[in-house]
Amino acid sequence: MTTQTAPAPNGSGQQASRAPRSHDAGPGNAVEARGIVKHFGATKALDGVDLTVRQGTVLGVLGPNGAGKTTLIRILSTLLKPDAGTAVVGGYDVLRQPRQLRRTIGLTGQYASVDELLSGSENLYLIGRLLDLPAKQAKARAAELLERFSLTEAAGRPAKTYSGGMRRRLDLAASMIGRPRVLYLDEPTTGLDPRTRNEVWEEVQRMVADGATVLLTTQYMEEAEQLATDLTVIDRGQVIANGSVDGLKQQVGGRTLQVRPSHPAELPAMAACLAERGISATVTDTGLLAVPITDDAQLTVVIGVLGGRGFGIAGIDTAVPSLDEVFLALTGRPTAPQTAEEAVR
């Protein structure tokens, strides 16, 4: 412990004093992967994947089960070696500088986990010590994160007694002990109920607000839309689309506003009234008025127009395109059937 280098005040000069970058890391990119290939026996889990996460942004990697998302995360966190390709995270090469890279990243996922027999605070303390924090600081950091993730009350209980949401929050806290510059979240809300999912989303949004760079994998378009700035869509180990969330939304269609009229007979009149204002609307088989919208302001306009003309509205809802619809729009076919690929994710 006497060899402990005195840590600089948090956040100061991280860019300036960082160790030499690899030459192939573009400035401003926290993660750069080029041509990543990974085979498991005869299965091609990843088949030449390129991916870039800009500093301080959230990249969503969207894809169905078995698309290769977790394999990609495992390669970028040094848990797996790629068969081909290069990847640089925070300026460090995954193959040549794994030790430095590990100091740069935090991983929360379906795989990296907490010790169920240990309490929440013991789990965090252990990781702090393994990240070379002095005992006192490790305790303080654990307490600080437990409070931040609303786990203070449960801090002394074994993690196996935690609910799904609490466990996921402890997992998030564990990955943040070392203030990682790049955070990987591998399907952070898969299997959670909607309320818990919202809790996790809020935490991720807070981390991003604090300046974290995040690489997030998900199966849900809604999650990507909530959290990500950029999107990379992968399917069967290949990138099939890439760009900003807004750009992709335009490509695949954004949200749809669904209006349930008080008097179904008025549906055609409602559509016509919106058409006058240049807003296209369609009447669905289920007796709803469906209006594609790209932002919240448009939603207000549509409701205002309908209300202003005296149409009765019984209910409104917005729907985000599902992963299936995204895939249909991008590839012209639905998501790949979940077969053997799933086993080797």
């Binding site: 060899t3 600089a8 070379d132 600081q137 604090d210």
Partner: peptide, 25 residues
């Protein structure tokens, strides 16, 4: 919260894992 504790961050990433580190781990 960011000022409550300091964590050896990326600026120390190149530090070798010494014997005392191994023993602590």
């Amino acid at each position: 919260m960011s000022t409550a504790t300091t964590v050896p961050g990326a600026e120390f990433a190149d530090r070798r894992i010494g014997l005392t580190d191994h023993l602590r781990h």
